[in-house]
Simulated assay, not measured.
Amino acid sequence: MDIIFSLVIGGSVGIIGHVRKYGKIVMPRKTKRFIYLGFLEELLLGAIASLLLVLYTSPNSLVEITIFSIIAGVSGEAVLSKFKLLQENNDEK
């Protein structure tokens, strides 16, 4: 029960972050070189980060699960943004 709840909360936070970043929901699409996941990328990232944090900390109440899931969803997006920024900086050099 805790695992499912953390996945839903983390995925929801990931989608909210996606909408905040792009202003809309970008649907997945396939290009000639790769498959762009669109909003699914942030959904999966938030859900997995939330799941890992909840499994690692083993919270005792529903409030703790919610707080940890929100923190993990937001931090998952921040980590992804940081990796993209570092990659862009390396490409410029």
Rank of each mutant, 00 (worst) to 15 (best):
G23A: 02
G23S: 02
K24H: 08
K24Y: 09
K24W: 07
I25C: 01
I25K: 00
V26K: 00
M27C: 06
M27K: 08
M27V: 02
M27L: 12
P28G: 08
P28I: 00
P28H: 03
P28M: 08
P28F: 01
R29P: 09
K30D: 15
K30N: 14
K30S: 15
T31H: 07
T31F: 00
K32E: 15
K32S: 14
K32P: 10
K32M: 14
F34R: 09
Y36D: 15
L37D: 08
L37H: 01
G38D: 02
L40Y: 11
L40H: 12
E41P: 07
E41T: 13
E41C: 06
E41I: 12
L43T: 00
L43E: 03
L44D: 01
L44M: 03
L44W: 03
L44A: 01
L45W: 05
G46M: 06
G46V: 00
A49G: 10
S50Q: 05
L51P: 13
L52H: 07
L53D: 04
L53Y: 04
V54I: 08
L55Y: 06
T57S: 14
S58I: 15
S58C: 14
S58N: 14
P59R: 05
P59D: 07
L62H: 09
L62P: 00
L62I: 00
E64L: 13
E64S: 13
E64G: 03
I65G: 08
T66Y: 03
I67C: 10
I67S: 07
F68C: 08
I70A: 13
I70D: 06
A72T: 01
A72Q: 01
A72K: 00
G73F: 05
G73R: 02
G73D: 04
V74S: 04
V74Y: 04
S75D: 11
S75W: 06
G76H: 09
G76E: 10
G76C: 05
A78G: 06
A78T: 09
A78M: 06
V79F: 05
L80G: 15
L80I: 02
L80D: 15
S81M: 07
S81Y: 09
F83G: 13
F83Q: 14
F83R: 14
K84I: 11
K84D: 12
K84R: 13
K84A: 05
L85I: 14
L86M: 13
E88W: 06
N89L: 12
N89P: 01
N90V: 01
N90R: 04
D91F: 01
D91V: 14
D91S: 13
E92M: 12
E92L: 14
